[in-house]
């Protein structure tokens, strides 16, 4: 499998990348880790006229907690997974990074690419939905912060404008008594999800669920939020009954299709099961467990 020819440009900084993008007339693609793009190019399903390599831009692969968590778009999945801040304070992100493709792909793949590619089967989108994150885009008209709910427009389509690149992901600082978890069912290790569920909960002082947010992987045209399930949990004690209700709600609002990963009905059922399990794990973490 051999890609079609293309021109290659190395962006030296963000402004340069934006300028290259703006001048490409929409024919250029941004190259970060390349782990989704290059396979598409090898099958000639993508034939961009040029690639703009942004990986040499400095300062886009850091992780800082600065009122909120700021994740540089170019951080590699492997680094994200091992990062001490992530592991200790945002284990749901470590859960997610650890199940993206396989360890070798994770040595190249970036979180920014995972989001900007907008594949509903990618793992970070659901987690970022659950975390109520936002993404920072820079373009010729400057910087804007896009709430994650507004970011995924359709399969492989985001709110990024043609001359914008995703530079950072911002995640609100975890509230007290909160926790999150990402669970993924796959046909074999390294596969895209049959279903993935990201759940974040905040408990009140009595141990009831004050707020929950839930993101679903690969059961819709984009990663989707299970808003009804979130609603069902609010104010409830995290008991089996409440979890079952949330699972059923999430299953009902998921929109899977039948494919090689299984019939839609099965996937819906897995949404139900994994939603409960993810909430259970998130609650345990909210209580200080693992």
């Amino acid at each position: 499998m051999i890609p079609a020819s293309f021109e290659y440009e190395v962006a030296t900084d963000v402004a340069h990348a934006i300028q290259l993008l703006a001048s490409s007339g929409g024919e250029a693609k941004v190259l970060a880790g390349g782990q989704s793009l290059i396979p598409l190019m090898k099958f000639r399903l993508a034939q961009p006229a040029s690639l703009i390599d942004i990986t040499r831009i400095a300062g886009l692969s850091g992780i800082r907690e600065n009122g909120e968590l700021q994740i540089g778009a170019l951080i590699r999945e492997a680094d994200l997974e091992k990062n001490a801040i992530i592991r200790q304070r945002y284990p749901i992100i470590a859960d997610t990074a650890a199940v993206v493709a396989d360890p070798l792909v994770r040595n190249m793949a970036t979180i920014g690419g995972n989001l900007a590619h907008a594949d509903p089967a990618n793992d970070h989108p659901a987690t970022m939905l659950a975390l109520r994150a936002s993404v920072v885009a820079q373009g010729s008209k400057g910087e804007r912060v896009i709430p994650i709910d507004d970011f995924f427009l359709d399969t492989f389509t985001t709110a990024l404008r043609p001359d914008e690149i995703l530079v950072e992901i911002r995640v609100p600082k975890p509230a007290a008594r909160s926790g999150g978890a990402y669970l993924k069912l796959e046909r074999k290790v390294g596969d895209f999800a049959i279903v993935g569920v990201a759940a974040v909960v905040r408990l009140d002082e009595s141990g009831k669920i004050a707020a929950a947010s839930i993101g679903l992987t690969n059961v819709g045209l984009t990663a989707i939020r299970a808003r009804n399930a979130e609603e069902k949990l609010r104010g409830q004690a995290p008991d089996d009954k409440a979890l079952a209700a949330a699972g059923a709600a999430a299953a009902a609002e998921s929109q899977p299709v039948s494919d090689l990963r299984g019939p839609a009905e099965y996937k819906r059922d897995v949404v139900r099961v994994l939603t409960q399990r993810a909430i259970r794990k998130a609650v345990a973490r909210a209580k200080g467990g693992n």
Binding site: L185, R187, I194, R261, G262, P263, Y266, D269, V270, V273
Partner: peptide
């Protein structure tokens, strides 16, 4: 024997989680 085949049997027999 895929997970979904097993799950269909469990559901049909009331043995699923």
């Amino acid at each position: 024997i895929t997970p979904w085949k097993v799950q269909q049997i469990l559901k049909a027999n009331g043995a699923a989680e």
